[in-house]
Amino acid sequence: MKLKIGNDTMERIRCRVRFDFPGFRKPGRFIFGGRDTFEVAEEKRQNQVENWQNVPLQGVEIEHIEQKETYSVFDEELGEEVAYAPVELIVNADSPEEIVPFIMREEYRKIELYHPESIDFNKPGIERFFSRINEELNYRLSFVKKNTDS
């Protein structure tokens, strides 16, 4: 399928994107209520998967969502085990700019492009792409700043 963007004709982008949602140990209050890293990671992943399933994204179609087996790794910096709950999405997007919010996430691990084999940017196309990266970066930075000020 080819889409017309301005004077340009561009094919839809189809790719697989992998995210690994981390889970850090949350101690409970008093004796009860502590949650292990696997529970925390899987809950984070489930919340995001439900969001992707229920909230439409302009210019993006999520074709398939596959939740992978949760695993743990010892984090030497933290000195403890951290669980990761992976999920892979197959995404169809109208343009490269629509993929930017996915790859700017902290949980992003890798992307595999299925279609098209190559993307040629003209001057206005690369300017739109860089502008979208800047918008997403500023959005993420303002979100972090807002959370640290609270």
Rank of each mutant, 00 (worst) to 15 (best):
E63R: 15
P124S: 02
F32L: 12
Y71G: 04
R35E: 10
E98R: 11
A83T: 02
N92Q: 04
E98I: 01
Q53S: 13
E117G: 14
E107A: 14
A93M: 07
W52F: 15
V100R: 07
R35Q: 13
P56R: 07
E88W: 02
S131C: 08
N47S: 09
I31T: 04
K44W: 01
K110L: 05
L57E: 03
K68I: 13
N92A: 07
F129E: 02
F74K: 04
I90M: 10
I133N: 01
E117R: 14
Q48Y: 09
M104W: 02
P27I: 12
V73N: 05
F129K: 08
Y108F: 15
P101W: 01
D36E: 02
E61R: 15
E66H: 13
P56Q: 01
E107S: 14
S118G: 10
E107K: 07
K26D: 01
E81W: 06
V73S: 01
Q67M: 09
I119V: 13
E43C: 03
E43Y: 06
R132Y: 08
E107L: 08
K68G: 09
H115T: 09
T70N: 06
F121T: 00
G79C: 03
K44A: 09
K26S: 07
K68M: 15
G125A: 10
E135K: 12
V40F: 09
V91E: 00
I133V: 15
E77Q: 11
V73L: 08
G59K: 10
F121A: 04
